[in-house]
Nucleic acid binder design. Sequence first.
DNA 1: CCACAACCCTGAGGGC
DNA 2: TGCCCTCAGGGTTGTG
Length: 301
Amino acid sequence: MPELPEVETIRADLERRIVGKRIGRVELLWPGCLATPSPEEFCNELPGHLIERAGRRGKFLVLDLDRGASGVPAPHPPGPTDPAVQLSHAALTVHLRMTGRLRLRLPRPDEERPKHLRAVIALTDGEALWFEDQRKFGRLYFTRTPDELAAVLRKLGPEPLEAAFTRDALASLLRGRRAQLKPLLLNQAFVAGLGNIYVDEALWRARLHPLRRSDTLTTKEVTNLHEAIVHALHQGIVNRGTTLSDYRDAWGTAGMNREQLAVFRRQGKPCPRCRTPIEKIRVAQRGTHFCPRCQSLPHTT
DNA sequence: CCACAACCCTGAGGGC
DNA sequence: TGCCCTCAGGGTTGTG
């Protein structure tokens, strides 16, 4: 399940390898993976665009494209320093959801294609971006204006690894919320990029019970939670992501963060801090792992 | 705002 | 071998 660290790993790898390259032929092997626009528009309009940047927003990978469309004049030709130049760009956005993979490879002429290949974005230098997805939850978005891209990303909360996400910012977000911590942190509108793995890991590090109500945290606990979120995500990135079964980076290689996990899918195994066996419960329809001793729930809930 | 559940989907693993 | 059931879960949608 690719979360922020996994998407960030893929983004950083792609950034070095595909920026400045041009998109060639596009194949949709399973059109259902396309969120927007129509398959015809996608296959006809995407080729020719130059990839200018590999960005990320939460768990979305955003490839910024030039305006492409050779020969089509801009609606209102801007001057060379006009910010509208930036704002006019198209984008190819990917959400990997559960089992999605994005791989950059040099296809061999006679090779067999994997069963779960859903889309192929060829580059004009001969390489190709493969979008694979066993469970068909992942989605591609081709947007042609900043407004269209903004509509895709509009519900996302703040980026937890940006400078603006301070301890005080988290405290301010928490103010007035009364949900349980686990579902709140999974909510992408609250903070963008956390998923089941890193929420469990962050709550363990902060010594907070997943069912703890968000409006009962002390100042010190908010500080701990902030530090724990940032630490869990950074550690995931340093280790190039967590591979439980499906996740692979842009070269098809597994991440190494699984060995560093304190609680996730470690039920019955000793807590790295206190050796108490890790427990697994179900919260918000998600498997939730925690140390019953380190992360005890106050009697006041 | 919050909790809950169905839905989208495939493959792995258990029971018989 | 094979069939049925459960489980895995990110995000959307709808209900209360």
